[in-house]
């Protein structure tokens, strides 16, 4: 993984635990929301937080690509399966206004949730997030898996690319054929073997440093005025959305 970096916005002053809880609460709230005004408002607020306080605009927009590929699928397929007023007809099927509205609602909701989570959590590096999860009561063994995965993903990617280059040098030309599947399978096998051997060495090294199945809990940071202000603001907005008819 990349080393931890911050963008220096005001959100960095808020404890990751508070940000994680807020992201979770608002994601759940928005997942049950159908009002366009609320969904649109949430998206706008999330964008504002992201660009002013948490991450570069380009990085934020890039995070929205996966969800919007799915949303595109919604607009292509959902209106054909929805009953209602037809806008177009083709081969006995109708593209309906009701379906279009449903796709728009779901698409707006999906974007609002991803934007909210991205704005609050997107700039956190995985290790900070893992220690926040740990301090909020996530199982230590799960956090151990999380930390180890985070550590080794980048390394294994390099290792795989090295194996892949070695295969390319020996005239491996990937294509849609069994030879490709077999070669990639062998590369994956080699990668897994190396990773398991590495795991044994890592475990031995960790044991030498006093590891007994659990990493010590990371130190937290003290509760600050920024945390209190952010938590209070988030709670007021949350309650407002919940109780507005």
């Amino acid at each position: 993984m990349e080393p931890s970096h911050t963008y220096g916005g005001w959100l960095d002053r808020v404890d990751p635990r508070v940000r994680l809880l807020a992201a979770l609460a608002f994601s759940i709230l928005l997942a049950m929301e159908t009002r366009w005004a609320v969904l649109g408002g949430a998206a706008a607020v999330a964008c504002a937080i992201a660009v002013t306080a948490s991450m570069p605009t380009g990085a934020f927009l890039k995070r929205l690509i996966p969800v919007n590929i799915f949303v595109l699928g919604l607009f292509v397929f959902v209106p054909w399966s929805t009953e209602g007023t037809p806008l177009w007809r083709a081969g006995g099927f109708a593209y309906t206004a009701e379906g279009l509205e449903l796709a728009a609602t779901v698409g707006l909701r999906a974007n609002a949730i991803v934007m909210t989570a991205g704005a609050l959590l997107g700039a956190l590096d995985p290790l900070t997030l893992s220690s926040a999860m740990r301090r909020l009561g996530a199982p230590p063994k799960l956090c151990l898996l999380f930390v180890l995965s985070t550590r080794y993903i980048g390394l294994f990617r390099q290792e795989y690319l090295r194996l892949f280059r070695a295969a390319r040098v020996r005239c491996f030309e990937p294509g849609a054929n069994w030879r490709t599947l077999q070669t990639q399978g062998h590369l994956v096998g080699a990668l897994l073997l190396r990773s398991m051997d590495r795991a044994d060495r890592v475990l031995a090294a960790m044991r030498c440093r006093g590891f007994h199945g659990e990493l010590p809990a990371p130190p937290g940071r003290p509760w600050s005025i920024h945390d209190a202000a952010f938590a209070a603001g988030a709670t007021i907005v949350f309650a407002g959305v919940l109780w507005t008819p």
Binding site: K141, L145, F146, L148, Y152, L155, M196, A199, L203
Partner: peptide
């Protein structure tokens, strides 16, 4: 196995 599973999940 926890260490091995963590490293494998990265793989």
């Amino acid at each position: 196995e926890a260490v091995r599973a963590g490293v494998l999940s990265a793989a």
